[in-house]
Design a binder for these strands. Structure first.
Lengths: 206, 206
DNA sequence: TTCGGATTTGACAGGTTTGTCATGTGATCT
DNA sequence: AGATCACATGACAAACCTGTCAAATCCGAA
C-alpha cells in the first residue's frame, strides 16, 4: 500500500478523536490548512500541514506520522569499515540506516530521507564540518534531524561542534554501545519540539 | 522513468492521492480536460491541462511539475568569485541560479531545486568528481539534470568525465559566452518533448 | 460556588461524491 | 505471439458536505 500524502477529514477526526464536523470547522476558520477536490469539495489535508497544525496546538502526534522518520539514521562516514560497524549497531536496535560516504551524498540523502538522526564524521575529506552543522540547522526541512558528531578530534574541537549546532558528540575511538545509547537518547528527546525556527538561509544569487 | 507529455488516469490518481475512478469522473464531467485514445478509449491528460486544473482548484502542485525547473541552474563551485561570475552570466539570460560552495550543499540543493542544469567544478575540495557524476546519473530524481563539468583539468580527464556521465565539459579558464552557450544548448536539448501547446514562452532567452 | 451568555462541539438527515470490487479489453513488454 | 499490466465500466457501499439544532465547555460576574 502506497503511503498517503494527504488525509481526509474523517481520518483527521479519528486521529484527533473528534467529530469530523469539528474538523471541517477548523478548516473553515483557517486553523487547519486544506485544499478541496473539485467534485463535492472534499477536503484533503497534506500530512505536513497536519503535523504543523498538531505541533502548533501542542496536540499529541500520532505514532503513525513520526515513526517512519523516527527510526531512520543517516551515517556520514568516509571509512566504510566504521560505517558498516555503526550501521550494524543501529540496525540491531531497530534503525533503518543509510550511509553517505561523502559530503555530496550526505546532502542528497539528508533531503531525501529526512532521518531522525545523523551521525557526522567531521574529518571526512571535503567536509568543512562546522559549516555543515550550521547549514543543516538553518535548513528548515532538516532542522529537526538530530546530529551526533563522531570524530577523532580533540575534545576542545568537539566542544566547538556543539556550539555550531551538534546535538551531541562522541570521540573516536568509541564503543558501539556508547553510540547506540547516544543515538537513542537523541531520538527519544526529539519528541520535545523547539518552537524556534531558524531562518532559511537561501543561497540564491541576487 | 520515460519522459511523458501526457498523463494517464492512474498517474493523476497518484498525484492527487485519489482513486482513479474519481479521476475518470472528473474527466466525464468536464472538470478535467482529457482526450481519448482510439483503442479502448484510454484517457490522456496533457501536462499543462493538468497543471491548469490543479491551479484552478488550488490543489498542491507536485514538485515534478513546478514550472521554473527548466530555468534553474545549480552552480557547484568553490571559488566564490568564479561562482558569482557564472551566476551573473546565467541570470542575464534568464536563469534562476543557486550556488553550492561545497559538496554537501551541492547534494541538498540538487534535491531541493531539481535544476535543469548543473555546472560542476570537479576540483572542488572534497568532491570526488567522477563519483558524483555517476551517482547523479543513477539518482532517479536528478537524472534529468544536465551536467556541465567546468574544470581546469587536462582535456584527457575531461574526456573521462564525459564517459562518467557529464553532458558536456568546459575547460577553465573559459569565456562566459562559451559557458552560456553550452548551458543553453544543454537545456534546449533536454526539451521534455513539451508538446505544441506549451505556452512557456518565457523560455530560455534567445 | 453558581449562574447566564457566548462559543465550540456533537448528532442527525438528505443529497452527492468517492472508494471498492468484479469483469472485460486494449496496451505493453519480452 | 503470449503473458502481464493498466485502464474503462457498472453497480453498490462507504465517506463526505451542508444545514440545523441540541449538548458541552469556557469565562466572567454575582
Amino acid at each position: 500500500m502506497r503511503r498517503k500524502s494527504a488525509l481526509t477529514t474523517g481520518e483527521i477526526a479519528q486521529y484527533c478523536d473528534v467529530n469530523f464536523r469539528t474538523v471541517l470547522r477548523w478548516i473553515e476558520r483557517g486553523k487547519l490548512r486544506a485544499y478541496k477536490l473539485p467534485g463535492r469539495g472534499d477536503n484533503r489535508v497534506r500530512i505536513d500541514d497536519f503535523r504543523e497544525f498538531l505541533e502548533q496546538h501542542k496536540m499529541p502526534i500520532p505514532e503513525l506520522f513520526t515513526s517512519p522518520r523516527r527510526h531512520r539514521a543517516l551515517i556520514v562516514e568516509g571509512d566504510a569499515h566504521i560505517a558498516g560497524s555503526i550501521c550494524h549497531a543501529l540496525e540491531h536496535v531497530g534503525f533503518e540506516t543509510v550511509v553517505a560516504p561523502d559530503g555530496f551524498r550526505a546532502g542528497t540523502y539528508l533531503g531525501k530521507y529526512t532521518p531522525a538522526v545523523m551521525t557526522l564524521d567531521l574529518q571526512m575529506p571535503g567536509l568543512t564540518g562546522v559549516n555543515i552543522l550550521s547549514f543543516v540547522r538553518a535548513t528548515q526541512d532538516a532542522s529537526k534531524t538530530k546530529i551526533l558528531v563522531v570524530s577523532a578530534m580533540p575534545a576542545a574541537d568537539l566542544q566547538q561542534a556543539m556550539f555550531a549546532g551538534a546535538d551531541d558528540v562522541l570521540q573516536k575511538p568509541f564503543d558501539n554501545n556508547q553510540l547506540v545509547e547516544k543515538v537513542k537518547s537523541l531520538v527519544a528527546g526529539s519528541t520535545v519540539r523547539v518552537p524556534i525556527y531558524a531562518q532559511n538561509t537561501e543561497a540564491v544569487c541576487s
